[in-house]
Design a binder for these strands. Structure first.
Length: 824
RNA sequence: GCCGGAGUGGCGGAAUGGCAGACGCACGGGACUUAAAAUCCCGGGGGGCCGAGGCCCCGUGUGGGUUCAACUCCCACCUCCGGCACCA
């Protein structure tokens, strides 16, 4: 008898057999109810890290469990294959991004297979394949056609050292991720997706996602950032212009004492007094050289400059000075802010710094604020004052009343504003899907006709960090003919943000080889939405928001029938070592390769599922892994040891008593517990329950002489271990299942049911409390009535002793659990 | 600052308002062994009493509260982690 589980032989054997049998292939129109289990697909960075292992181990448990519960489970895997690291590798090591990417895919696919994950590999694809990005481009055209893809000049992040633009996610704490140089801003013409058109629905429909973690929903809400207020116009004195301002506090309009424009506000030039032009221009230049990030950092000093103009507050008829200031953002609202120092902390600080008047228009209940005595703005509720007809009104009510008044006078209107900005999708990069647009001198900007897709990425390109797309230097790519007039034209050389590729991939798995459309509608209707989506919380905003946006748009144009793509979302925690996220710089990386070669896939998976619940961060422990390996060996030894005894045994009868019945009870209690725990994603406690069952089998074998053992009960226990363990440790389970004499895969078994009759204990321990403190224990049949429980408790000598001379005022009983005697 | 999440043994973690610490790690004891490893069995929150069978007190970040009963619910606060952050 082998003493240690020969994992490498067995894992290889079953992986080969599963593949030959097509165990994980699922047909699109399988008669069983559908279940779409999806894990976020990886970027092919080189090799798997523990975060991947965790993500895919979790998904695999769900997929296997749902399969055993009778669902047709779609469980696919692919590659988010476009992106910057490939291009950086090209610059650094002289490898072509395409070759680099495909090599990595080949390697990582092999690693995933070694983990024994239940993917239908026929559905695999990579987003960098023309068969995929053709449809990414096609989808771009749909956005373009519907006016949701447009080009405008916008400030972007720029690294002066690398001479390139950077994606927002490559800017870490205001500096270039690669060379740490502070990032500046540059105005460039860029492509955008008009996600702001969907702000309202993206926000409101968060309510339709009960299966998402609260945390993620809140993050999305904050990101979209809805606020209600009023748009108010302020006429400029001695000038025809009006300054529109957005405010969430129309109730404070009577307290406006100045006005501030963003430095890049279009009116600034016109309104600046001639004698101030020079200093204003200087101020603007300084502000522009700062990145938006450092300009808006919370601790940045507020700086402003009077530009020599005044505008009128129509409500009061007063004129107020116009400033420009670094803290006003052109991108939010109207790029202009009214200053109410008494009731806004920023305005208060600004007013104090520049000696602007402070006018109190909201008085706190019970007291009266004196502007000169104030040390901070008063931002809470109160009664309106110095506000003409609104004096004495509560300010909450005042917000509505003032807005209505503005609308009546034609000076302003109610408005909802979102913080969400349009999605900048163009990248001056090579390794992405080319934007399918052509520029013709005669005909202007034109979409590439659908029949001409894909716009292929050329292979021979020089990767120099010039700040412009490497495609610009590729003449064969750039020069083309105009789809309208047939004359010479040039292609757009920017590529798309890779987040676009990953915003629709979950549709593609349903029909990965479809050539005439991005997907087969019937198959999308069959499988979508994704029933369970699993991935890291770092995608809580970007990827998940973009995917929701895509789905809503696709529904609007009739390409899919669903409103939300992911019904349930599980965000797994990070894998830590020594309390910190694993990283090269910290040198605390544990490689999956090494762990798998030493312990095998089952142990690796088991540990990562056992060490913490999925949502929480997981602290890596080499000793913990050792413990899981020990456990699987323990399972291996006991099942093999009892094989001769149980191999021929039939299932146990229902009339067992004593230890044999106790063993059956444990088996069925475990089935119940594991089933419920998996459903709630409490994999760690599910595994601990199986451990308890295994411990129970050991004790049974240790204490009960063989003649007294019921082989059926023992067999049932052993095979239950194999079945319950199969989603977590698929290889060892399969091997033991086969050794128990079964010819079909354990993974094709229906999930076991428990017998409720077997859960019942003959006697249960009932705790006896006096005033809530445990003072004794009694054994009773579980069905004992409260009266019986109380009587039995009061028969206990120790309890009588403690109660002597005291008056019982009340007895609380919980059937099968406790008796609490309350005394005075 | 705002919004989330979390604070439980030496460690990872468990507990529909009902015996706090399941399960695992580490540790200690025993069995097996010439010995070690491996394995199997047993014991471990802290403190105290003891007639050795047990018994008592304290204990889930802090302070209050609700309740027969609170890790669990409510109020206030502290610490850590994550997200957003001059959003008008």
């Amino acid at each position: 008898m082998e003493d240690r589980y020969p994992f490498s032989r067995i894992e290889e054997k079953w992986q080969k057999r599963w593949e030959e049998e097509g165990l994980y292939i699922v047909d699109d129109f399988d008669a069983r109810p559908k279940y779409y289990c999806l894990e976020m697909f990886p970027y092919p960075s080189g090799k798997l890290h523990m975060g991947h292992v965790r993500n895919y181990a979790i998904g695999d448990v769900v997929a296997r469990f749902k399969t055993m519960r009778g669902f047709a489970v779609l469980h696919p895997m692919g590659w988010d294959a476009f992106g910057l690291p490939a291009e950086n590798a090209a610059i650094k090591h002289g490898v072509h991004p395409r070759d680099w990417t495909w090599e990595n895919i080949t390697f990582m696919r092999e690693q995933l297979k070694q983990l024994g994950l239940s993917y239908d590999w026929r559905r695999e694809f990579a987003t960098c394949h023309p068969g995929y990005y053709q449809w990414t481009q096609w989808l771009f055209l749909q956005f373009y056609r519907h006016g949701l893809a447009y080009k405008k000049k916008a400030p972007v992040n720029w690294c002066p050292s690398c001479a390139t633009v950077l994606a927002n996610e490559q800017v870490v704490a205001g500096a270039c991720e690669r060379c740490k140089t502070p990032v500046t801003r540059r105005e460039l013409k860029q492509w955008f997706f008009k996600i702001t058109d969907y702000a309202r629905r993206l926000l409101e429909d968060i309510d339709k996602l009960p299966g998402w973690p609260e945390k993620v929903k809140v993050m999305q809400e904050n990101w979209i950032g809805r606020s209600e207020g009023a748009l108010v116009t302020f006429p400029v004195l001695d000038h025809p212009a009006e300054i529109p301002v957005y405010t969430t506090r129309p109730d404070t309009l009577y307290g406006v004492t100045y006005m501030v424009l963003a430095p890049e506000h279009p009116l600034v030039k016109e309104l600046t007094a001639p004698e101030l032009k020079e200093s204003v221009a200087e101020f603007i230049e300084r502000a522009q050289n700062l990145s938006e990030l450092s300009r808006t950092a919370g601790d940045a000093e507020k700086e402003g400059l009077f530009i020599g103009a005044y505008c009128e507050n129509r409500l009061t008829g007063e004129s107020v000075p116009v400033f420009i200031a670094n803290y006003v953002l052109m991108e939010y609202g109207t790029g202009a802010v009214m200053g109410v120092p008494a009731h806004d902390q920023r305005d208060f600080e600004f007013a104090r710094k520049y000696n602007l008047p402070i006018k109190v228009v909201i008085q706190p209940p019970g007291t009266e604020l004196q502007p000169d005595a104030m040390i901070e703005a008063y931002v809470d509720e109160g009664i309106m004052a110095n506000s003409g007809p609104f004096n004495g009104m509560g300010n909450i009510e005042g917000m509505k009343a003032v807005t209505a008044y503005l609308e009546e006078k034609g000076w302003g209107e109610y408005q909802v504003t979102y913080r969400l900005r349009d999605w900048l999708i163009s990248r001056q990069r090579y390794w992405g899907a080319p934007i399918p647009i052509v520029y013709c001198e005669k005909c202007g900007t034109l979409p590439v006709p659908e029949r001409d897709l894909p716009v292929l990425l050329p292979y021979d390109v020089a990767f120099k960090p010039t700040g412009e797309s490497p495609l610009k230097d590729c003449r064969e790519f750039v020069s083309t003919t105009c789809p309208s007039c047939g004359g010479p034209a040039s292609r757009e050389t920017d590529t798309m943000d890779t987040f676009i590729c990953s915003s629709w991939y979950y549709f593609r798995y349903t029909s990965p080889r479809e050539e005439n459309a991005p997907w087969d509608r019937a198959k999308v209707d069959r499988w979508l939405p994704v029933d369970q989506y699993i991935g890291g919380v770092e995608h809580a905003i970007l990827h998940l928001l973009y995917s929701r946006f895509f789905t809503k748009f696709l529904r609007d144009i009739g390409l899919v029938g669903i409103e939300e793509p992911f019904t349930n979302l599980l965000t797994q925690g990070m894998v830590l070592k020594d309390g910190a996220k694993m990283s090269k710089s910290k040198g605390n990386i544990v490689s999956p390769e090494e762990i798998m070669s030493r312990y095998g896939a089952d142990t690796t998976r088991l540990f990562i599922l056992f060490a913490a619940p999925p949502e929480r961060d997981l602290e890596w422990s080499d000793q913990g892994v050792e413990g899981c390996a020990r456990f699987l060996n323990r399972v291996w030894r006991i099942v093999n040891a009892i094989l001769p005894e149980v191999k021929k045994a039939a299932m146990p009868k229902n009339d067992l008593v004593g230890v044999n019945r106790e063993l059956r009870r444990l088996t069925h209690v475990t089935i119940k517990k594991v089933t419920e725990d998996i459903e709630r994603f409490n994999f760690n406690t599910a595994i601990s329950a199986v451990m308890e069952l295994v411990n129970g089998i050991y004790q049974f074998c240790d204490r009960v002489p063989e003649v007294d053992r019921d082989p059926g009960a023992l067999r049932e226990a052993a095979q239950t271990v194999a079945v319950l363990l199969s989603p977590f440790a698929p290889h060892i389970s399969e091997e033991l299942w086969a050794r128990l004499g079964y010819k079909t895969s354990v993974h094709r078994q229906p999930w076991p049911d428990y017998d409720p009759d077997l859960l019942v204990q003959e006697k249960v321990t009932v705790v006896v409390q006096i005033n809530g403190k445990v003072r004794g224990r009694i054994m009773l049949p579980p069905a004992a009535t409260p009266q019986e429980m109380q009587d039995e408790a009061l028969r206990e000598p120790r309890i009588r002793e403690l109660l002597a001379g005291r008056t019982m005022s009340k007895v609380v009983t919980v059937p099968g659990r406790l008796v609490n005697i309350v005394v005075k």
